[in-house]
Design a protein around this nucleic acid. Structure first.
Lengths: 340, 340
DNA sequence: ACGCATCGTCGATACGCATCGATAAATCGA
DNA sequence: TCGATTTATCGATGCGTATCGACGATGCGT
């Protein structure tokens, strides 16, 4: 592996000059720069990350702390990971995987060893054991999700509260007076993953304002659970029933449960679900969806933390950014109030 | 951040002694070790990764090159990632994400900058642009998957050929003389992801040996495609039909297609599918499955590359390891030849 | 033509750790 | 008891880069 000294020698300049050509932190004459760049090309030189980290006190690596909980929507988690990784590359950073099973100690480790310049935490819970640690780390930490007490932390997430509010408003405007929400999988609810509560708060708030009823039922990967929830919901509904099901993993089961009861979405039942646009369109009855903007959240998350890394002022920050969600009405809801 | 020099000072020894306490590469007296360990504890010292990499020419990081192709089974990909990451930790290594969109240049980058000591490549295709690069890198590279020409490469994967063979044998033994395979999603097949061909080779081979017929039909996330495949398969079948569907993403669609045609798995049709044991058990008719051992493949992959890293002999290696798959007969196949 | 600021480059140093050779201390045999 | 080993520790050096101060060269105004 060639070093910057080799490049310097090949170009007939000092090693420091090579460094300045690369960083642009001091003026370099056109002639010299050409020579150095030619030498770099010639030797296919690439700076050594370890040495760079040591001398520059910057690794250009961001730690991504992911939970691997089988019950979660792995496919959508992957979407986050994918977008985070490629966005990080756009900011000239790399992503290091930190698995949940190391727990809070993992955070201390990667920061203590200075493997990472900063961290992104996913799947933040209301009372998360990682938070006290995160607050004391003297590197930027970005949470995807909003814990009960976000003080002293930098958070971003989809605006689940407005999402819940909007779903209820749209269904109410379509004429429904009783709206049933099928919740996330129990594993998610029980972990007190923060977004569940926020969604429900928004939905309940809208219901109160508009004078409609919102009822909650358990979700789950199990057909029996969904069947029971649907039956209870139908029994408690006057008029045309409406369902909101923001958990992607239960879409199929719900749809079949409704079909089994002779209900056709868009005709004698309204459904707002969650699915990629492609999948939503492919349904027998194209599904109205609430898009929780995973890609946009991921992009902004990386941007925020990279900005913090630039800022260099690693004192305690605090901020909260909510990404607007998007409801798309297709055919599974009655009389969509706004087109598309 | 405390350094080893700080620790040395606190313990009243030389910095090199601290280093030897940590590495164990030279004998240290009990007394001195205690002092040093106490100082480490006291200062919560953690060695600086950059300095360690620079001096020791080892980063203890493994690059994981993942494809993010929406059509793939993201959930099962995540299973690989998860197990790889935690296994790597057991070997005291970390995982750096390298996204596919950097292409082969990404490999050159992370190796050239010496961010990684080695690489794991996932989703290897028959003619993969990364392979020529991989062969010339002077770090260990481990492929999960087997390309058309594996010479000079270290590969591991599930034994898809035996899996195909075994599925056909079991169904033939259950009395089926015509067996229909619903293939992976077109996006997978078209990319010439190597395992598709291997599976089919095994299945076709067994069919020839046993004198039964195997027919292939396209898979897909689309209900229409599966419906058409099922209809064609049924039309071409004498006696009780049998299906093999190794792609996890099409299980639900296939099951519904069969139900819609009045067929009950285990009674008037046999089905070998693919799903986690939990999910398989939860089906209306518990699904017989072919387990492609993603966890075991991941674990062994990490072990192999860590062994190569230990070996230190980074000359060209070549090896091929196949992980046996497991067929579990539940209720969706006729007369299971071996129980449970 | 002369002092002065500016530009471009060099040399030296620090970053934190691993490792090698050397040295002091302890152990052993005869 | 003295030299020969062995054991435990120290000091010095190198890893490859970033950065700071210094210095010669160049251009400026007067």
């Amino acid at each position: 592996m060639p070093t910057s000294k080799d490049v310097a020698q090949a170009a007939g300049v000092a090693q420091s000059t090579v460094s300045y050509v690369l960083s642009g932190k001091r003026p370099i004459s056109e002639k010299t720069r050409k020579k150095v760049e030619a030498a770099i090309e010639e030797l296919t030189y690439q700076p050594n990350a370890g040495a760079r980290a040591l001398a520059g006190r910057r690794t250009r690596v961001i730690g991504l702390v992911i939970p691997f909980i089988p019950e979660l929507e792995m496919a959508s988690l992957m979407e986050f990971v994918s977008v985070i990784a490629s966005t990080a590359r756009q900011f000239d950073h790399d992503i290091l995987l930190v698995t949940e099973d190391e727990g809070a100690a993992g955070l201390r480790r990667v920061v203590g060893q200075q493997i990472c310049d900063g961290l992104i935490l996913m799947q933040v819970e209301d009372e998360d054991e990682r938070l006290p640690v995160a607050r004391t780390l003297n590197v930027p930490v970005l949470l995807i999700g909003i814990p009960r007490d976000p003080s002293g932390l930098v958070c971003i997430d989809a605006d689940f509260e407005v999402a819940g509010d909007q779903c209820v408003r749209d269904l109410a405007a379509a004429g429904h007076s009783v709206i049933s929400i099928i919740e996330w999988q129990p594993a998610v609810v029980n972990r007190h993953v923060n977004y569940v509560d926020r969604f429900m708060r928004g939905a309940d708030g809208a219901a109160e304002t508009l004078g409609v009823a919102v009822q909650h039922f358990p979700g789950g990967a199990d057909v029996a659970i969904i069947s029971e929830s649907v039956d209870k919901a139908l029994a408690a509904t006057q008029g045309i029933p409406a369902f909101i099901a923001p958990d992607r993993t239960i879409q199929d089961i719900l749809r079949r449960a409704l079909a089994a009861r002779g209900l056709t979405p868009g005709v004698d039942v309204s459904v707002i679900g969650s699915a990629s646009p492609t999948l939503a369109e492919l349904q027998p009855v194209p599904l109205s969806t609430i898009d929780l903007r995973p890609k946009e959240v991921s992009r902004r998350a990386v941007k925020i933390i990279c900005d913090l890394l630039e800022a260099e002022n690693h004192g305690p920050h605090e901020s909260l950014e909510l990404v607007p969600t998007v409801i798309t009405h297709r055919s599974s809801t009655l009389r969509p109030p706004h087109g598309s």
